[in-house]
């Protein structure tokens, strides 16, 4: 598998570390009334789809950037690679 890094170009799978579903970017609000349930869900339950999956990869053996990779879990085909910080900012985080 080759991940096409938005800044560095195509890089080999072995340079990256996998974290999991990109829903991990959206940490629940700790002050919400149901914060406990939300955090249990955030920490443990996953959609785990067979098909397109948005997921977090860390370029550990490279520029140490976090990436949001959209990949098909059935074919391993990667359709989009974004910098996680851009994704988070676009969603209104880290002003």
């Amino acid at each position: 598998m080759i991940i096409n890094h938005p800044l560095l170009g195509p890089r080999d799978l072995s340079e990256f570390v996998y974290l999991g579903d990109a829903c991990l970017l959206n940490r629940p609000d700790w002050q919400a009334d149901d914060a406990l349930d939300q955090f249990i869900d955030y920490g443990h339950t996953r959609d785990n789809p067979a098909g397109l999956h948005r997921e977090l990869w860390y370029h550990e053996q490279g520029d140490r950037s976090w990436l949001v990779v959209t990949r098909n879990t059935v074919t391993h085909e990667i359709t989009s690679v974004e910098l996680a910080r851009n994704v988070a900012r676009a969603e209104g985080r880290s002003k």
């Binding site: 999991g20 996953r46 785990n48 879990t73």
Partner: peptide, 18 residues
Amino acid sequence: GSSSKVMAYAGMRLPIES
């Protein structure tokens, strides 16, 4: 292996990754 797929038919999300 396919637990998430099958249990999704019952509306369940599982603490599992394939």
